[in-house]
């Protein structure tokens, strides 16, 4: 006779143990990823006068751990997600105020209102230099990332549609070469690209990194978009054309809405790529002709008078913010990208 009750108990226990082990593993793996970001934020808000304020880092982790613990307990007891989040955040906030309250300040963010960060720090140390202004770098980064995103999304969408729907001589070779291009590390191309940009006369202009990044990113994004177009059934397009649409109208009205997810996904990736770019923005300028966020961050770090870690962290926080916001808003589209599919 089989003891069903006992078997069910064993299965429940097994499932709990497996889930528990999985949770512990995931938490352990995420610690080295999450902690640096937490500390970056802490340093930005607590460090003073060029010294890294390590005293606040451990209490900060304690605060977050307690908050997470309260959230976990609340979830287990109350089983109401929103309430649990509110309780966790509230606890962390109050505890943080008690433990770290007197250490928090906004001094490290003074670069946002005053371009003259070095003079401000060390009196008359470096008179006469031209200091980069953070908002100029921010605007340039925004311009670089968004222009590049618009070009990448437009070109890869149109190219991928053509590759997906039309057969022409050399189509397969073209597709294979798209992937081969992706196999080369872009950094190996820095010198030839520098020469080309120099001869074309775009050196020290923002056009150079925009065009170069676009060219480097296109192959991969075309490939991704082709996958999305491949998933759109032919029938729908043929149906639209018998319904009276021209091919272009069918593309706009029927096909394009179905690859929207793909366009948003590659748009986000292209934007983040442009936003974080360092190699080509730094490699294609010879002086200080333009500043973007990555070069600005490097400039702040490079101070001859000793590094102001507090300010570096503060710049980093500002630098991370737009990408983070974009990511949060578009997260649900990005997860669908791996599916590469269109659901009717």
């Amino acid at each position: 006779m089989v003891d069903w009750v006992k078997l069910a108990q064993r299965s429940r226990l097994g499932r709990r143990l497996r889930l528990g082990a999985l949770s512990v593993f995931l938490v352990a793996v995420s610690i080295p990823i999450a902690v640096p970001y937490i500390w970056m934020v802490m340093i930005a808000f607590t460090a003073r006068r060029g010294m890294a304020e390590t005293g606040t880092l451990w209490p900060a982790l304690v605060v977050i751990l307690v908050g997470l613990g309260i959230y976990g307990v609340a979830m287990l007891w109350l089983r109401r997600e929103r309430l649990a989040i509110v309780m966790g955040v509230l606890t962390a906030f109050l505890l943080g105020l008690i433990l770290l309250g007197q250490d928090l300040h906004l001094q490290n963010f003074r670069f946002m209102v005053n371009a003259n960060i070095i003079d401000d720090l060390d009196g008359q140390g470096t008179v006469g230099e031209r200091y980069p202004w953070v908002w100029e770098a921010f605007a340039n980064s925004l311009l670089l990332a968004s222009t590049q995103t618009v070009i990448v999304v437009t070109v890869s969408t149109l190219a991928a549609y053509y590759l997906s729907r039309f057969s022409f001589r050399g189509r397969n070779t073209f597709l294979q070469s798209l992937l081969v291009l992706q196999a080369f590390p872009a950094i190996t191309l820095v010198i030839p690209i520098f020469l080309i940009v120099f001869w074309v006369g775009l050196l020290n202009t923002l056009y150079a990194p925009i065009l170069v990044l676009t060219a480097l990113e296109l192959p991969f994004f075309i490939f991704i978009m082709k996958g999305f177009f491949d998933a759109v059934p032919w029938d729908i397009e043929m149906s639209a054309m018998t319904d009276g649409a021209s091919r272009r109208e069918a593309f706009w009205m029927v096909v394009l809405p179905q690859v929207r997810v793909g366009m948003i996904a590659i748009g986000v990736f292209a934007f983040i790529k442009g936003w974080e770019e360092y190699v080509f923005v730094n490699g294609l300028r010879t002086g200080e002709s333009y500043w973007v966020m990555s070069t600005y961050l490097y400039y702040v770090r490079e101070d001859v008078m000793g590094v102001d870690y507090g300010m570096v962290a503060a710049v980093a926080v500002l630098y991370v913010l737009p990408a983070l916001i974009l990511y949060l808003f578009c997260q649900k589209y990005l997860t669908q990208m791996t599916l590469g599919g269109v659901k009717g």
Partner: peptide, 13 residues
């Protein structure tokens, strides 16, 4: 001409 496909080919959007 009106056409009905096996997949119906309705426009999902």
């Amino acid at each position: 001409v009106g056409i009905v496909f096996q997949s119906y080919a309705l426009y999902p959007n």
